[in-house]
Structure formats: structure tokens, C-alpha cells
């Protein structure tokens, strides 16, 4: 019955439970979903993030000169749902623990993540080519003994020719061997 006395005595020595922010650092949970960041080295421009984005925060536009694409993510309409992070096949998008989002109106349209992802040019014919990160290439060619790094620097057409040449050489070798 007198349990409340214990609680009362405990509270006398416990001190306030108020978070010290803004005078001290605020605690951010480990899995807190803050501002979304893009790692342009891993982005392949598949646009699945734009497709699943609830707030329509992501804009991906290819440059007219074919040199690459611009990736824009506007934090001011991002609902921090984390769908882009979940669906990104290469792990290029991640939610950070950064929640310091308050900004003056003058910065409203600068409050975004902007990246330019350049296209590679094909080693065979020079056509523009989307870069593929090694991790994804390894997954695609996991069971094939091919030089994946070389194949990924070729456009689909040159890749076909290269593969056909390899197949022909292999069959020639097999014939001459027998």
C-alpha cells in the first residue's frame, strides 16, 4: 500500500527527465530515419526510388547531351518513410540520423540532395553506358566464369558480340582438341 512512498523517494533523487536539447546534444536512436542520402557511386539510375516515393521527392533527369543524369531529392517533400532505402537494389540510398531540418524560407528550394551521375562510354563503340557497381555485377555473374569487369564496360550490343566471339573460340578449341 505504501509503494508510492518508494516511488516518491526515488523521484526525489532521480532528477528531471527533460531532454537537454537545445542546450545539450539530443539522443538519436540508432535506427532513426532522418534525411535521406544518396551515394552516387552506387546509383545505377533504375528509378525504382522515384517510383515508390510517397511524397514524390525524387527527380531523375537525363542530360540532353547524354553525359549522365541529375539526381535530385527534395527533403521538403520527403515523408521519411524509408521506402526508397528498402527498394534500392544497390543500397545507394540510406536514411541518416540527421534530423536538423529547420531552415529559413530563403533556403526552401536549396534544401535538397543533388548529384550528377556520369555515364561511362562503351569500350567497343563509345556509346553512353550506365555504370554498374562491382557488387551488383558480382551478383549478376555469380555463376559465370567471365571477365565481368570487362563486360560491364561494354554496351549491350558490344557485349553480345564479345560473348559470341568467346563462344566461337571455345567451340574451335574444343574441336581442335578432340
Amino acid at each position: 500500500m505504501l509503494d508510492f512512498l518508494k516511488i516518491l523517494a526515488g523521484n526525489v533523487f532521480k532528477g528531471p527527465s527533460t531532454d537537454g536539447f537545445p542546450f545539450t546534444q539530443a539522443h538519436t536512436p540508432r535506427r532513426f530515419r532522418g534525411k535521406v542520402h544518396l551515394n552516387p557511386a552506387l546509383c545505377v539510375g533504375c528509378t525504382i526510388c522515384r517510383h515508390v516515393c510517397a511524397g514524390g521527392a525524387i527527380h531523375i533527369a537525363e542530360r540532353p547531351d547524354g553525359s549522365g543524369y541529375d539526381y535530385t531529392l527534395w527533403h521538403n517533400t520527403c515523408a521519411l518513410c524509408g521506402l526508397c532505402q528498402h527498394y534500392c537494389p544497390t543500397g545507394a540510398l540510406s536514411t541518416s540520423g540527421d534530423w536538423h531540418n529547420a531552415h529559413p524560407q530563403s533556403e526552401k528550394y536549396q534544401w535538397c540532395e543533388r548529384h550528377f551521375v556520369p555515364f561511362l562510354s562503351c569500350d567497343g563503340c563509345g556509346a553512353p553506358l550506365r555504370p554498374l557497381p562491382p557488387a551488383l555485377t558480382g551478383r549478376i555473374y555469380a555463376d559465370n566464369h567471365v571477365d565481368a569487369a570487362r563486360l560491364m564496360r561494354l554496351c549491350p550490343r558490344c557485349r553480345q558480340i564479345e560473348t559470341a566471339m568467346h563462344a566461337r573460340e571455345a567451340s574451335h578449341e574444343a574441336q581442335s582438341g578432340s
Binding site: F32, N76, T77, L80, H100, N101, A102, P104, W111
Partner: peptide
């Protein structure tokens, strides 16, 4: 002042 977030956490509102 803009405080984006869906919703912003209380510390962001304080900021």
C-alpha cells in the same frame, strides 16, 4: 521558417 518532416521529431520543432 520551414521544419520539414513527416512528422518532424520534437527536437526538430524546438530547433
Amino acid at each position: 521558417i520551414n521544419v520539414p518532416g513527416c512528422p518532424p521529431r520534437p527536437q526538430a520543432i524546438i530547433e
